[in-house]
Design a protein around this nucleic acid. Sequence first.
DNA 1: GCCGATTTGTCCGTATGTATC
DNA 2: CGATACATACGGACAAATCGG
Lengths: 241, 241
Amino acid sequence: MPKAKYAEIYKDLKAKIESGTYGFQELLPSENHLIQTYDCSRNTIRRAVSALVTDGYVQTMQGKGVRNIFQPALKTSFTIGGIESFKESALRNNQVPGTEVLHFAEIHTDKKIASHTGFPVGAELYYIQRLHYLDGKALILNHNYFLKDVVTDLTREIAENSIYEYLENTLHISIVTSKRIMTVEKMTEIDEKYLDLGDYNCLAVVSSQTYNSDGIMFEYTQSRHRPDYFRFQDNATRRSM
Amino acid sequence: MPKAKYAEIYKDLKAKIESGTYGFQELLPSENHLIQTYDCSRNTIRRAVSALVTDGYVQTMQGKGVRNIFQPALKTSFTIGGIESFKESALRNNQVPGTEVLHFAEIHTDKKIASHTGFPVGAELYYIQRLHYLDGKALILNHNYFLKDVVTDLTREIAENSIYEYLENTLHISIVTSKRIMTVEKMTEIDEKYLDLGDYNCLAVVSSQTYNSDGIMFEYTQSRHRPDYFRFQDNATRRSM
DNA sequence: GCCGATTTGTCCGTATGTATC
DNA sequence: CGATACATACGGACAAATCGG
């Protein structure tokens, strides 16, 4: 529900950039002009523009203006810097998703698990292995750990559908922050068994910790991707801090 | 030169978080309290805290407070979401960097190069292949393309040292935005020849477009990393927009 | 080179809304 | 219900960079 005014302006400007209303390398209307267009304060405009900067759509230049640096040809299949579930991103790209639950267990955190997940020793967890298909091809092998205190009454049936839908719609858990680390690892026997790796002997691995709105880490997931279907995008900005 | 007040507050709060003044999962002082501590306006505090949020140090909770979610154990060897040169990151981690220039040429953009770099056809470029060492090990093979209009008088000698130092200190070009895409690719003959890949048959590839302060894309670089020394971190936040 | 107009960057103060306790 | 805390929005002031005359 983006009812906030700055979010509406962000959406509108983004649409105009993507549709070509402002051409590549052109300047957007000045802040003063946008203030009149959207009938709002300068701060509100600046928040919207600043969000476009962090998303890599525009670049601000003191004394000059705001330049559109969006190139449609480089549009990627993943959203930039956001959090999105497997099912969401599949549907957005018009692909047919599928999920197979390989393993479903309730465990306690031991020292080894604690050290690589970040959960405290002794915490009760759900541990789930899932295989994700896209258009019939096995592309991703997920190892999920969920904190039972937060994610209550998880079942194999839910895991076969979308866990994220269950979290949001039933448990009303909102995901706020996710820390991710991307590495490349050699394949294991399990990878080889379930993923069709061709002659690759390694895969792209994304390890992530997810926090809910109380600031509690309730999920640790390791996603192991088939290399040829993996792609990860971000925008960096040099900061003065 | 971070003389901006919000940047100072950001630095100070970050230092207190990293040093343990505020413990993991604890709440920071409220905005009103911080206003008195730093003798500034509410907006200024909010800018500093908001930067800490995007860097994954804290999480704000409406009605409750600002929670510290920084775990020192997970501190990484790369800066989060920033732009940093090879030499900078090597020195920051107390490692000895080395660079070997494999190829140095001046070329024109043809259709093929244009399509994967994003430069217009016909643009004059420097094309440089460099091998980067860390503590004597060949870890990264870089393919750099620089726009001659912007990066003037580049030489092999400069390429042997730090091109980024030349850009910033001599040409006074400030890097503002960098769009990066991370993939995993099978090794080529050149990779195999120069990088010690062991029994890996693929590597981590970062392709990036870099923009200067005029909003002009002046660099395209493909960085090919030895998998076992590659690590990429970011923080994602779910947005209402 | 200087000056004024334009444009973005920083900072302040205030008011109101919303969520939590 | 009231107090506290963060979220949104407005308006104003001055600084810094750019550009044209």
